[in-house]
Amino acid sequence: MMSGPSSLRSMASCWTSLTQSLKVPTLLKPTLLPTTFTRNFIVAPKREKRRIKIHPPIKGPPKNPLQALTTQALQTLDPNGTRQKMFSRHNKDSIRPGDIVQVRRRNGDPFSGVLLNIRRRGVDSAFLLRDHLTRVGVEMWFKLYSPAIEDIDLVQRKAKRARRAKLYYMRQPKHDFGSVANVVKEYTRRVRPTQRQRK
């Protein structure tokens, strides 16, 4: 490739088959003097490459903000950590799928049923209860940390630990638990009066 002043380019290109080196013409402009003639083209003196300055990045925010936000929110929603403990995987006595659970709500009647599913999503965690009302299967999702839930009670444990996390097979007539009303009534008679006195 050519490199050098364009005014001399045509002159250089006609000297393609030259074998001897050219002498620098004396009539050359003073500004072009630093250029040197070699075989058949002009080479400009090597210039130092300008390095582009790259600025260092600024410090970024933490990569996983959700975890921090969750702990922050749970400090107000679940200050004692009771509900976290109640559904914790690390707690031996936690509520597990298959257990019968009663949820008392701030507004509205309590609802109880068999726990089919625990959806673990931090602040947005929820669980699914199934019961029968007027012989019709009813399922309800509850948000674990919702302020609308006053209390969550474990009514009865499943006799044998369920071997899967989602007990959707319990919707089939063959496996359906049916109404939990009797179990809950028994529980209320046995346990709740003492709780009421304490309150």
Binding site: L66, A73, R106, R121, V123, D124, P147, A148
Partner: peptide, 18 residues
């Protein structure tokens, strides 16, 4: 980032995006 929820003091849940 992700979606989560925020609870208002009156118990209302508002789904939100981070």
């Amino acid at each position: 980032k992700e979606m989560t929820a925020v609870y208002l003091p009156n118990g209302q849940r508002i789904p939100c995006t981070i």
